[in-house]
Computed example of a mutant assay.
Amino acid sequence: MDPTELYFAEIERLIAGDPRLTTLSAGILAAARLDIARDSIAFCRALDVSHALVLREIGDLEDFGLLKVDRRDPRTSRTFYSLS
């Protein structure tokens, strides 16, 4: 399976397992699990997604206990995270 197929298969698996997840939040988790991105800006650049949307989803994932925010850059709001 190529990396793109693996990424989308992981998204589908995550969504099937947790109805609280949106496609974007599952994408953030999948990217962290597959070592594609472990910070908000890297994820945005890799998938060409708005940083504000990603930050909102990271907050939801943190509330769900699925993601742990390790640190934030106060100037750029870049958020580094790891799986919980």
Rank of each mutant, 00 (worst) to 15 (best):
V54M: 06
L29V: 15
R38Y: 03
I28D: 03
E57I: 09
A32M: 08
R38T: 15
L55W: 05
I41K: 10
D35M: 06
D63H: 11
A31P: 00
E57K: 13
F43T: 08
V49K: 12
R45A: 05
L61S: 07
A31I: 03
S25R: 14
L53G: 01
H51L: 11
I36R: 12
I28P: 01
S50P: 00
T23C: 04
V49H: 04
D35Q: 10
L55N: 13
F64A: 12
A31D: 04
F43S: 08
A46S: 14
A52C: 02
G27F: 03
D48Y: 02
E62P: 01
T22A: 10
E57H: 13
D63F: 11
G59C: 08
L53F: 07
R56P: 00
D63M: 12
G59I: 08
E62T: 15
T23G: 11
C44R: 07
E62D: 11
L55H: 04
S50W: 00
H51V: 10
L24T: 15
D60P: 00
D48F: 03
L24W: 07
E57N: 15
C44P: 03
D63W: 05
A26L: 04
A42V: 12
I28K: 02
D63I: 10
L53R: 14
L61K: 05
A30R: 02
R56N: 12
T22H: 05
S40C: 10
V49M: 10
S25F: 08
H51M: 01
L34T: 12
T22D: 10
D35R: 10
I36F: 08
L61M: 11
L29Q: 08
S50A: 15
L34F: 11
I58N: 02
T22S: 15
D39H: 13
L24Q: 07
V54K: 01
E57V: 11
V54L: 02
A46Y: 09
D35C: 05
A32D: 07
A46W: 02
F64Q: 14
V54I: 13
S50D: 14
A52S: 12
E62W: 00
A31W: 00
I28M: 10
I28H: 03
